[in-house]
Each structure stands twice: as C-alpha cells, then as structure tokens.
Design a protein around this nucleic acid. Sequence first.
RNA 1: GGCGAAGUGGCGGAAUUGGUAGACGCAGUGGACUCAAAAUCCACCGAAGGCAACUUUGUAAGGGUUCGAGUCCCUUCUUCGCUACCA
Length: 914
Amino acid sequence: MEYDFKTIEEKWRNHYETTNPFRFDPHKPGPKYYCLEMFPYPSGNLHMGHVRTYTLGDVLARYKMLKQFNVLHPIGWDAFGLPAENAAIENNIPPSVWTFKNIAIMRNQLKSLGLSYDYNNEVCTATADYYKWGQWLFLKLYDKGLVYRAKAWVNWDPVDKTVLANEQVVDGKAWRSGAPIEKKLIEQWFFKITAYAEELLTSLATLDKWPYKIKAMQRNWIGKSSGAIVYFKIASKKTPSAYPNEGEFPIFTTRPDTLYGATFMAIAFNHPAVHAYIDLPAKERETIIKFIDECKNIDQHSDYAKKGIFTGTFIDHPLTDEKLPLYVANFVLAEYGTGAIMGCPGQDARDYAFAKAHELPIKHVVCPADTNIETYKNKPPSEAFTEHGITINSQFLTGIPTALAIEKMTTYLEEKKLGRRKIQYKLKDWLISRQRYWGNPIPMLKDEKGTFEKVPLSDLPVILPQNVTFTGTKSPLADHPEFTHYQTNDNRQVKREHDTMDTFTCSSWYFLRYIDAHNKKEPFAKALVQKWMPVDQYIGGIEHACLHLLYARFFQKALRDLGITSNDEPFPSLLAQGMVTAKSYYAPKIKKYLTPDEVSGHLQPHPSFTPKPTEEITNITDDNSPTPNKNLHYHRTYGQLIVKVEKMSKSKKNGIAPEKMVDRYGADSVRLFILFAAPPEKNLEWNENGIEGCQRFLLKLVRYVNQFITCVKALNSTENSLIKPSSTQDSSQMSSPITQFNKILHPAIQKVELDIDRLHFNTAIAMLMETLNKFQSIAPKTQVDCHPMYENIVTFLTLLNPFAPFVTEELNAHLYQNLCNQLAGIDSFAKKLYEHTWPTSQKIYLTQPSRDLIVQVNGKIRAKLSLLPTLNKNTVISHAKKEPNIKKWLANQTIVKEVYLPQKILNFVTKPTK
RNA sequence: GGCGAAGUGGCGGAAUUGGUAGACGCAGUGGACUCAAAAUCCACCGAAGGCAACUUUGUAAGGGUUCGAGUCCCUUCUUCGCUACCA
C-alpha cells in the first residue's frame, strides 16, 4: 500500500459521514466521559490555535472511547457577535447569511481534521431554538433578583452611536470610526455576579485540576480586600442637607491603622455627587468644572499625569477634628469603594507624590519594624513606607504592629460608630447590554413611564427580525417598528427593549445544552444534566481566564441556586493550552510586517560582512561590538528586520492556514506535529521541518506493515491454505521474535496510557516513534509468529489511532484484507479500530531484568554492571569491587559507606586511606 | 508598579518519587544504495583532552542540604505572559 494520504483521508471522512460512528447517545452503556473544547466563533477561517485545541480534545475523546467510556465530545458555534454585523455593514450581507455560510466552511475544515464529533448534536447560539432558552434563563435570573438596571459609565462612540467594549477602544479612539471615545453614564442591564464574588473566590480552592496561573488570575480579578469604611464629616458652612448622606463623607481603606496620618481627602472626578462638594468663587468654580470634564476623556489604561484640584470644601478628621482639604482627583476611582479616599502620604506612594505636588503636610505613622523609632521620627524618609511595621505618632495605636493596629482601630471605629468593617471586591457586576443587532434580544418591555416588565414566557423566543437595514450607526432594532412595538395581554401598548445581550451570556451555559441539544420543552432535561455534568475535561485558550471561565462559573452557581442544575463548578479539570506562534518579520523602514515569502531568499548577512556598509550600520550595531549579532536580520530591499516569534495573526502576516498544511502533509501528520512539538500548556512554534518528521514516521509505519504482509505471504508457501493460529499461548514457548516484540510493545502500552492520562501527548508520541524504531529489526520467522505478530501490530495501530486516526484505520483494513486469506480465524479483526478496546499491558513483558546497575564512587559513575536482580547485596558489592575501573577508584581509599538500591545504584563513599 | 511562569545541546523538547542528563523529533556530519539526485538504510552528533580505555566539565549565575541535585532550600540575573493607579 502507498501512503496516499489524500485518498485515505477522503475515504475515512466519507465513512464517518455515512456511518456517524461518533453519534452521541446519553443512554449508551459505559461510564460517562464529557470531553469539551471551547466552541469557536465562526469567522469563516479555522486557524492553528483551533487545530491545536480540537486535536488535543480529539485524542482524549478517542482514547476514552477505546477505554469503553460513553463519550460526549460535542462541537458548536458561538455565532453571535460584532464581526457578522461589521461584514453586513461593509458588504451588505445579512449577518445570519454571513454567519451560516462561515459555519458551513468551518464545519468542513473540522471534518478534514478527522475530529470525532457528532455533528448532529451541534449547538449554534444564533438559532432561535438556542437563544430562546438564553432568554428563558435571563427571566429566571431576573425573578431571582440577579438581573437589574443601573447607570454605568461606558465607552461611547459618538459617531457610531453605540457602546463599545474596552478592547474596541484603541488609544482612546473608537477602533472603527476613529472618533475619540466619550465616557457616558447610561442606564444598562446588569447581571449581579458580585452576589457570588465570595463563592467564586473560595471555591477556586476546590479546582485542583486547574492551572495555578488561571486561578491566580481569577483571584486577582475578583480582588478581595478587607478593611474599613470610615465616616468622615463635611466641615462646612453649608447645611448638612446640601450634601449627599447628610454631610457624612465615607471612605474605604485597607489601612485604618494609618488614620492619624491622613492629611487630605480626595474624591473621584466622576463621583455622582462630585458637584455638591465644590465650594468656590465663580471663577475658580469654572476651572474645576472644566477639569472634571477633561478627566472624562482620559484613557484609563495609559499612565496619565496625576492631577487634582482643591474643591474649597474641608472634611473633619473623625478623631482629631483637624480640617482636611478635599480635592477632586483624576486617579480616584468612582467605581471602587465609596469613590473617595483619605490621603495618607506617609504610607501610600501615590498620596506621597500628590502631597509633594500640592505642598500638603506628610505625617509618618508607620515605622519599619527593624528601624529605631526615635531615629526614624527625627529623620523622616523621602518616600512613602507602604509595608507593615510599628505604628508611631498615633495616640492609642503607637507602638503596636500594623496587623494588630488595623484590628484595634477597626474595633474602635465600630464602638464609636465612626466606621465599620468592610470586605471590598474589585469584581464589578456584569454589564450585559449591547446596542447591537446581532445578539440575543433582551426579553423585556418598557411602558410609557419607563417601567420595565418581562416578556411573558409563552411569548418566547423574542425573534431577531431578518428584514433590517444597516446604516452603520445605531442598532437597526431601535428603529424597527414591528420589532419594538408590542401589545400586552391587557391591551397596553409598550415597547420592546432593543438592546441585545453580551455574547458571553450565550457561552455561559452552552455546555449544558450539548447534553440535550434537541430539547424543545426546556433548555435541558435536569436528569440528563445531573448524569453528564460536570465536564470531565475542558480545553481552551488562556485568553478566556477571566471572562468566559468566570462567567460560566457564575452561571453554574446561579442555575444551581435556581434548582436547575446541581454542580458547584462546571469544569473541575481545565487544560489551558498555549498559543501557536510563528516568526514574524517587521521592517521598521517601511513600518510594515512582511510575509515569510517576501523574506525568504532576500536575507543578507550583517552589513559588517559586506565591503561597503550601509547607512543603517551605525544605528544597528550595539555598543560598538565588532562581532555581528546573529539575531539581527537584514533584508536586501528593506534593510533591518525585526524578527520575533509571535502569536499567529493576520496583522503580523505570520499566520499559516491549516487547510494548506492538511493539503500538503495530510491531517494525520498535522495532528501529530501539533501535539508532538510542545507540551500542551506551552506555546508552540510552527516549524515545517517538524511536520515532515511526523510524516516520515507515518511513512515508516506504512512500510513496516507492507513488509509484514510480504513476510506472511512468503511464509505461507502452500497455495489456498491458511496458516492456523498456534495452539500454545504460553509465552515461554513462543518464538523469540514475538517475545522480543512484546517486550517492546507492552511498555509502550503502559507509557502511552500514562501519558494520555496526564495530558502529555508529546511524550506519548515520542514513545510511539521509539517503539516503531525498535520494531524495525523484528519480522516473522516461522508460521507460528504470524498470528501473534499480526495481533501485536493491530495493537500498535490502536495505540496510535487517537493521534492519527485516518492512516491507522486504513492500515488496519489493509492488513485484514491482505491476510484474511493467509491467516485462519482472524474474522474478529475485520472491525474498525474505533470499535476496538484499548489494550492492557501485561506485567511479564514490563520487567527488564537486564537493566544495568549503576556503580558510583563518591557519587560519580564509574561502571555499569548487568547482573541478575535476584543477587543479594553482598554478592553485588563483591562483583562491583572486581570491576577494573572500580578497583582503580577504590585504590588507597577506605570505604566509609555503601549505598545500595537494588536494580538502581550502588554508591561507595570513601575517604583516603592514611 | 503588582501577580505569575520559565531559563537544559545548533533548534523544539525528554527526565513519575532526588538515583545513567539530553528520550523523541528537527538541523548537521560521515558512510551504504544510485550513472546521478531524491527517498531510504547504517553510524556519529553538549564542551574540552585522549589512538583508546577513559578523564574533566556541563541543566542562567553564586552558595547550601545530601552518599548523590536539572529536580529540594537561599541569593542574584535574564526572558516571557497577564494585570495595571483597586487606596
């Protein structure tokens, strides 16, 4: 047989298509195994990152199938989202048409990789039979009090008239219109994820099969800190009622112990009541209001200059009655704590800088623990001391260590009713409103007075209308009369909410729908979900660490409390796989990335090698070093090139199309390479030579199988007769090639199994390669060898099958076809490899009695002995001492100690003889 | 600035628990086959010394624990990722 991968892969793809061997039946026998990969956005183009995720999952799913699990290994489409809408605006194609066309393309790309999905069990978030249940869940959460409406600051694009996500804002400008982003306070829908902040944090501890890194990222994101709210009071001429909270001025601090060090106060520029605190003459008032307006356009992600202006208002210190000036500051966050802070310059770096800039007093109230307090007091440091130490200059707290001082002050404040203990989270409620068309409509109605009510359950789904026109500004739903108009059962005319939900709401429960994808009566049957959840292995990119993975955990907990599901966590085991990277070539001269094709053949050596150095040389050579840096690259036309290994992307022109690779090398080789080149959690650098190596391995396998068939045919000299299987199954009677074969095969079974279980697919493949290399010298010698060897080769094909399903399936069929009229009684081998059972490694072939014993003298290897493992310690030692090289090293030495580990090492510890 | 991860040949990477460092693959070198090339097969492939046996050295750097350290502990350096004014 030739390794014609195109024909072979085509054949087995068709076989999968017609027989659907990976059909999901939740009631099939066997323990359940739910293998899930994050579903893709149907952009219309599968990229290498997808190939990696789905191949990882596929190996695991196929392996578990062979292990006789009932496997759920689903695929679907995260089909709502902006790109479809942008395509609609640009090319005048309806988003649904664009999306479903892309899905068809990508489904075929997935199929070409041989992934073992049941494509009849797909979930697509943009179809009404899915998003209906998203709306249903929205209403359930609403009833539970987990959905509310509130005003929030958003990124507002004044040209496109829509809210933008943070990642759609580039350098303070809208990515599409280029208009400067405005901060706007708009009423929006929220999911109350903060109600679960504590549980989301604490139950991270139960996720022992999650990468530590991701748990740390979520922990930081939730950002729990404990401290106190301290009630300051306005010290003003005005009546208390002129201020919010009757003149009370609460602030949050994690360091109540530093209260005596407060020398000023600051409030966020975008605090809802900021204007109430301005107490200045008209002219200065104008300046501060102008400042507040300017702050609204600051890009919060840049390192902007910290500024503040005095409001004219003073705040009473609750313990000392000092009057502290109140500033409006651009670095105080309105959304965190109370939106106002006390400034303790001695103990906070930002406050210190601010105090210096505004010539405010600086009080040091904490002294480093290892420093003399008197010296410290007399010679205050020129920076803030932000760590824990000993409290100083603080009345009743003086001399107390920080931790205790925090506790003491908090208790004191609570007793005097001047403050209270407070746990604060960074996590904010989840803003889900999008002023967009291509998303799940929020199932709410609004009457003339602006009161909201639910769309009745019987009216679900709220269908996304198809007859819409895109102007490029504003959601087409807002001006869509048939959509927005709604008549209630009691004949009131109300309007539909025309915002849609964030697409992350769709991906927060799709894994539940897979279990019961065709359910028309409910989102999923509770009993089935109870059987199939949680997901046994979840696989996806790390970029969703704090978004999707947190949202989905929240949904799972909320649905549990609604009584719909029963697990605390949806994904107890998570594999966060690394990026697929490739070299990118950036030419600074033309400020452009070049494709690998534009670069290859155009590289030139470092200019210092050439007789006439170019102009750039003076700029390029670093620190006048005469030796050229081999990491610097030069293009004949564009000069210096910056070569980096980066995540594959269109903009960097370093992407590699998976379908081209499948076309050139076959899906099996692509699958093998993407698993072999790096462990899953690490980044994988694309390398075409590596993929050739994997193809070479498959070619070698095909040759080996061909040779075996030839050998069998040669041994079966008599025509029209079959070789009978040997009656003796006793291994000691078996001829040597078979014993040899078993001793290679069975350790491989054990190793591959172990490696798949711990998700080390790269070393599993290495073992399979090594095994095949060792097989090369083994061929059947007599007719007795034929049956057992055939069986062993099929076992090897079964081990390789999850990694390279097409070629192994073909070889298995090829063997049977050629040997069924050579070997008797092999009918049981007619079945497909995916119908096989994973082999069991047999102990008798695993022991390696000939393994060398390492003999060391003082920890250095001086000899290797091959001895029978049954020998006792003394015999082994006396054998070792006879070894010439050991003799040499023991000469004139006294043995102090003998460390002996049977079958491993023997170490003589010596000292020179006097 | 904060948090996290990682430093092993020319390269990607192996090394369950402290016990033969460099599996497997790529690249390279030499040989076989061939008119020749490709493919394939065989051998070599960290550095230094040696005809060889073998020796020394070597897992970012320095120190420590141990009979024995890539692996454990301390210090330093470098790189990468995420996050960012969270009081």
